[in-house]
Every structure is written in structure tokens, then in C-alpha cells.
Computed example of a mutant assay.
Amino acid sequence: MTEILFYHLTESTLENALPGLVERSLSRQWKVVIQTGSQERRDSLDNHLWTWSDASFLAHATDQEPHPQEQPVILTTGEGNPNGATVRFLVDGAEPTNVAAYERLVLMFDGHDQMQLEQARAQWKLLKAEGHTLTYWQQNAEGRWEKKA
């Protein structure tokens, strides 16, 4: 059964929080696909992941580049899984599909964006009604993740 995690951003931006979570996935030898809500957001995250830290970068590509199957991380706006990822991150309102195809599904949403909050609540209800086991993580004042449900 797919592990489904909701990450509620309250103290940092997606750009600050996402790279660390992706790095943890890669350290477990998991391939990752990140689905964004728009091409502009995909391209913005593409640029950000190359420069997010002075000490490292996250090797990745977008779904528009050749040989996606060779990439550890793919950024996409679509529903496909071009690199055979076991973990899928959904950001900026991207909708989960084909949940069973992944070991882990991570839905990240901005707690300061009412539309994203409402969408996350709706996704929680739908996935719960489908019988999935869900966990909910929220940032504390220091920006660390705390399991709330």
C-alpha cells in the first residue's frame, strides 16, 4: 500500500523545504518525480534545484529533456512517471492520480494560501474515503516537521 504524506508549509517556502525532502528520498535510493501545477512553476523549481545550496545541488531534469529514465529526479506537469520513480511529490495543487504506482506520495501545500489549504483538505477526504492510510506533517516554529496525524 502506498504511504501518503501531507506536508503543511507554515514556516518556510516550498523552495526551502522541498530540496531537503528530495535529498532524503535519494539517500534511500529512491527515484523521485515532482509534479507541479504549471509549467512556470516547473521551470522555476528546475532553476532553483541547481542553485538551492552552496554546498550541493540536486541532479535532475524536466520531462522536456532527453533520457528522463536516467534521471534520479524529474520535474513534470503531467501524470507520467518517466524515470520509474517510487516517490511522487505533488506541489502547487497538482492532483494525485495512479496512487498505487508509488511507494510514497507526498502532497505539499502552502498554509498561507487559502486555495491550497482547501484543496489539501479535499484531497485528504477523498484519499481517506478511498481507504488509504494518511499522515499529516506540519512545520513547527523552527521549521522542523512534526507529525500531527
Rank of each mutant, 00 (worst) to 15 (best):
V99T: 13
P82I: 01
S27N: 13
V22M: 14
I4C: 02
G78Q: 05
F57Y: 13
L9K: 15
A129E: 12
G80Y: 01
S53E: 02
D92V: 00
Q29Y: 08
W30Y: 12
R88N: 05
N47I: 00
T77F: 00
Q114I: 07
R28P: 03
P68T: 08
R104L: 04
L134W: 15
K125A: 09
S12P: 00
D43N: 11
Q139G: 13
R121Y: 04
T2H: 01
I34E: 11
R42I: 14
P82A: 01
D92L: 00
T133L: 11
P82G: 05
G80L: 02
A17S: 15
H112L: 06
G20K: 07
Y7E: 10
T135Y: 04
L5F: 05
T76D: 01
A94K: 02
H8K: 13
A149Y: 03
P68M: 02
L126D: 11
T76R: 06
D92S: 03
E130S: 12
G20I: 03
K31G: 03
L21D: 05
G37A: 01
L45S: 05
Q71E: 04
T62P: 10
H67E: 14
Q35H: 04
Q119W: 09
F6A: 06
W124R: 14
E3I: 03
H112D: 04
S44D: 02
R28Y: 13
V22C: 03
E95D: 09
T10A: 12
L127E: 14
I4G: 01
F6M: 08
N83K: 00
Q119S: 09
A101P: 05
L117I: 12
V106M: 05
Y136F: 15
S12E: 09
